[in-house]
Design a protein around this nucleic acid. Structure first.
Length: 332
DNA sequence: CGCTGTTTAGTTTACT
DNA sequence: AGTAAACTAAACAGCG
């Protein structure tokens, strides 16, 4: 199914700034109300939180952002998320913690502050380049962490302290602490880089080894400079992005993802995250203009100059220019 | 104290 | 219809 359907569903769900409008009435209102176009652009973007986080990180120069920077990126980009902040920001935090595709990069002493940096797991690949931005076909799992989880879940490790409701008592929280810390330590760059290289395909492995392994072995990651860390992550992300090409010849890196039809180029997808990258050509920035869902027409292709969220001068759901297609107005 | 991060649980929704 | 991904809420700990 294409993301056009996803888009329609997102709108159809009635996620219009908190209203529980039925799909039909939303559509009727869209047709009747001339001011609706503005509301329409405040509709919930057709992206999952995971894809939004991914966008934010991939658009940052260092390929890593703090939590608040991720928040800011999303709010800058989508007015929808300027409301109900507590709700979606909780979900963002949950997504970051819960999904193995996000890794924590510790702050270095020269960059003190609150919270870690968040980056993308190099093995997570192009999670959304298959065209689905609301729902991945398969959740990315870090096998190492998966092992840890199952180990901790196994009967030998988890004495049943749960009460009938399944809610933790304060005591249980205390008892969980070691597990908590293990998990926390596991969810960072150090463990990410100690991942079984066998999981990478040959080319990636060679590159990673050639470029990074020496450094990896010589330094403890926590002691790396921020520049080293980000350079490493940049390279890894580049590998992930260029894996598109490899997939055409060797099949998908994440083999559980279905193959796209022949001729399909992920970066051509209307909501492609690849298209967000600053080095992408934006000559086709009006690509969506001719499409029926022109309300999102400039969603994906960010302006050339975006290298950090702070430079975002306009948002993509709000700019009046977005309301126009090549034929003049948005048609629903 | 507020923010960040982790975890659990329940619900909703996309997809097969 | 069943399953799994995504979303939401909430409790809690730790840190600056």
């Amino acid at each position: 199914m294409s993301s056009i359907n996803n888009y329609n569903t997102a709108i159809g769900r009635g996620d219009l700034g908190g209203g529980d409008t039925s799909p039909n009435s939303a559509l009727q209102r869209a047709r009747a109300d001339k001011t609706y176009r503005r509301s329409y652009t405040h509709a919930k973007p057709p992206y999952s939180y995971i894809s939004l986080i991914t966008m934010a990180i991939q658009n940052s120069p260092q390929k890593m952002l703090t939590l608040s920077e991720i928040y800011q990126f999303i709010m800058d980009l989508f007015p929808f998320y300027r409301q109900n902040q507590q709700r979606w920001q909780n979900s963002i935090r949950h997504s970051l913690s819960f999904n193995d595709c996000f890794i924590k990069v510790p702050r270095t002493p020269d960059k003190p502050g609150k919270g870690s940096f968040w980056s993308l797991h190099p093995e997570s690949g192009n999670m959304f380049e298959n065209g689905c931005y609301l729902r991945r076909q398969k959740r990315f799992k870090d096998e190492k962490k998966e092992m840890m989880r199952s180990t901790h879940k196994s009967p030998s490790h988890s004495v049943d302290n749960s009460n009938s409701s399944g809610k933790k008592t304060p005591l249980q929280h205390g008892e969980d602490k070691s597990h908590h810390l293990d998990k926390a330590n596991d969810n960072n760059l150090s463990s990410m880089l100690s991942i079984h290289p066998a999981k990478l395909d040959v080319d990636q492995m060679n590159l990673l080894h050639a470029n990074d392994l020496n450094m990896h072995q010589q330094h403890h990651h926590q002691n790396m400079s921020h520049e080293e860390l980000s350079a490493m992550i940049n390279r890894s992300n580049h590998l992930a992005l260029t894996s598109e090409h490899q997939m055409l010849h060797h099949g998908p890196m994440n083999h559980h993802l279905k193959q796209e039809p022949a001729g399909y180029t992920p970066s051509n997808h209307p909501f492609s995250i690849t298209r967000l990258l600053p080095n992408e050509s934006k000559s086709d920035i009006k690509m969506y203009a001719d499409m029926q869902y022109a309300g999102y027409n400039t969603l994906s292709p960010l302006p050339n100059s975006i290298h950090s969220h702070t430079s975002i001068g306009n948002d993509y759901y709000n700019s009046p220019s977005l309301y126009h297609t090549s034929s003049g107005t948005t048609s629903l």
